[in-house]
């Protein structure tokens, strides 16, 4: 297991995962540059719709992945997963930012009056906007400095907001689809599954099983 030692994971694992997380964004930006230049691209016949959906899908996937790391460390009895938790959370935020950029710039073209009507009148956008507002303080306080300033206890309490973000994001997705569709419900089921690991009962049972101490923030 020396290959996956803390030291190796920090030195090589993190940059590698960082690069992986960038792939969808690079694909998207490359294709938009192509589209703008009038060159062939893979964004389809409605590039704005494609990039709204693409960035939303990746934001939600990475958010769910960030919520899977604590359960994974509980299940495997290894704290190494937590090394990647902050980066994963911040990448979820990054794709949320791309999602909003895509919507405000590419799709709505800075039509602020219509944008504001969207946020207040259309519930699924209100829900998405609320998710963003909840995610913002988590992104800001993601640094070691903020963990110190808030104290680990309060910091952890604040970061429980990510559960609300997850729920709001899934609702946003379900409401955005028409008719009865399974795909957003699958994301909802994954979220529900991950939330089971937050139940005190389940947590303490897993800890006893793997003889593990509670995981602290900022590992």
């Amino acid at each position: 297991m020396a290959l996956f030692s803390q030291k190796n994971l920090r030195r090589y694992g993190k940059p590698f995962v960082f690069a992986l997380f960038l792939i969808p964004a690079v694909w998207l930006i490359y294709n938009w540059v192509q589209a703008y230049a009038g060159a062939p691209h893979d964004l389809g016949f409605n590039p704005q719709e494609t990039s709204n959906r693409f960035t939303g899908d990746w934001a939600l996937r990475i958010l769910l992945l960030s919520l899977a790391l604590t359960p994974l460390s509980l299940l495997t009895g290894s704290p190494r997963w937590i090394l990647f938790r902050r980066m994963t959370g911040l990448f979820a935020f990054f794709y949320v930012c791309l999602h909003i950029t895509s919507y405000i710039w590419l799709d709505m073209q800075f039509d602020w009056s219509e944008l504001w009507t969207d946020v207040v009148k259309r519930i699924y956008i209100t829900v998405g906007f609320t998710a963003l507002l909840c995610l913002l303080p988590l992104a800001i306080t993601s640094t070691a400095g903020w963990v110190r300033r808030l104290g680990a206890k309060r910091w952890q309490k604040l970061h429980k907001l990510v559960y609300a973000v997850g729920v709001l994001a899934v609702i946003h997705f379900i409401m955005m689809r028409k008719g009865f569709q399974f795909e957003p419900l699958i994301y909802g089921a994954v979220l529900a599954g991950l939330m089971v690991f937050r139940l005190p009962m389940v947590k303490s049972w897993l800890r006893r099983r793997t003889q593990q101490k509670p995981i602290n923030a900022g590992v």
Binding site: N46, D111, E114, D118, R122
Partner: peptide, 19 residues
């Protein structure tokens, strides 16, 4: 008359960038 989930005031003609 807007659709509850989006405005109907504008549209994107497929193939055009602006609405």
């Amino acid at each position: 008359v807007d659709h509850p989930r989006w405005s109907q005031a504008r549209e994107r003609r497929i193939g055009e960038f602006s609405r």
